[in-house]
């Protein structure tokens, strides 16, 4: 597997683990969840993005493009069939409305970038969070990265969808991590296939195994469920997840209420998915529904963090 592309390193994140953290977003994911909040992280390859909010309509790009792939009349501005990803327009764009999505970064480069914020990690109990996309798609690279962070004394947290080869993971990555956040989205396998694009067998298996290690004194693993209206927040799914947690002996979990802010990201990279255009998918999760889900977990003695 070739080295990954990195979407972004976001500093000063307060929502991705304890303390003040830097989040490294990998590009590429084995799942393709309908509601993915970072749709630009699904594909492994470089993409080009157009954000109409930043555009000053100077037309510099139209003159630059050799392939004539850009046009204000095109629904996404960029005709991605024609675009050769030469990035000439990105380089010429003064406002940053056109931008490259994903760039290769050496392990040392990431560590150097993240380590700038180390003084803040130290005073807040923070560190680095590896997210995506799916970092475990690039197991060798990820292994080197987490090892480097451990050498630097940086607390390392992995956010994963759980779909990876366990043995590989245990050998290359696990020993250098401090915490794992793993998504448990849908218990019904056919629904998981429909909405996430793959079976959940491996995911559930991996969770069981890692959770067992946690109970035996290994590193912490926290299961998290995105509450997507009508898909994951249904009574049946929530009860099934609770059942699964009970079976595993999970005491602590997290729920992530759905928000529709990702939708405009789809436009930027030229994607349209009609399933996301329902009213429910274009609104924030209903407060009462959120409370009902929370109540269900708490009734089962599962603490929500």
């Amino acid at each position: 597997m070739k080295d990954p592309l990195i979407l972004d390193i976001k500093g000063n994140s307060l929502d991705d683990g304890p303390g003040i953290r830097s989040v490294v977003f990998f590009k590429g994911c084995p799942l393709s969840c309908l509601w993915c909040h970072n749709p630009e992280s699904k594909r492994r390859d470089t993409e080009i993005s157009y954000d109409p909010k930043d555009c000053v309509h100077c037309n510099t790009c139209l003159e630059t493009c050799q392939e004539k792939a850009l046009s204000p009349d095109h629904p996404f501005f960029i005709d991605r069939e024609k675009c050769a990803l030469c990035m000439a327009c990105v380089d010429a764009c003064p406002s940053g409305a056109l931008s490259r999505v994903g760039k290769p970064m050496a392990v040392e480069e990431i560590v150097r970038e993240v380590a700038k914020d180390k003084p803040f990690f130290n005073t807040s109990g923070g560190g680095v969070t590896l997210s995506g996309g799916e970092p475990t798609l690039f197991m060798d690279y990820l292994g080197q990265l987490v090892q480097s962070f451990q050498d630097q004394g940086v607390h390392t947290l992995l956010e994963t969808c759980g779909l990876f080869g366990l043995e590989d993971f245990l050998g290359k990555v696990y020993p250098y991590l401090n915490t794992i956040y793993m998504d448990i989205k849908l218990m019904e396998n056919s629904a998981h296939k429909e909405y996430c694009g793959a079976s959940n067998d491996v995911i559930l298996h991996n969770f069981r195994e890692l959770n067992k290690r946690y109970q035996d004194g290994g590193i912490e693993i926290l299961p998290r469920t995105p509450l997507v209206p009508g898909i994951t927040d249904t009574e049946e799914n929530i009860q099934a997840i609770i059942g699964f947690y009970k079976e595993c002996g999970v005491k602590k979990a997290q729920v992530l209420p759905y928000h529709p802010l990702w939708q405009e990201k789809n436009f930027k990279i030229g994607i349209r998915d009609y399933r996301g255009e329902t009213r429910a998918m274009q609104s924030f999760l209903d407060k009462n529904r959120l409370q009902a889900c929370r109540d269900a977990f708490m009734a089962a003695d599962i603490q929500l963090v």
Partner: peptide
């Protein structure tokens, strides 16, 4: 506007 975008963004 392009020059304005350049000085503020680049």
């Amino acid at each position: 506007p392009a020059l304005h975008a350049l000085v503020t963004k680049k």
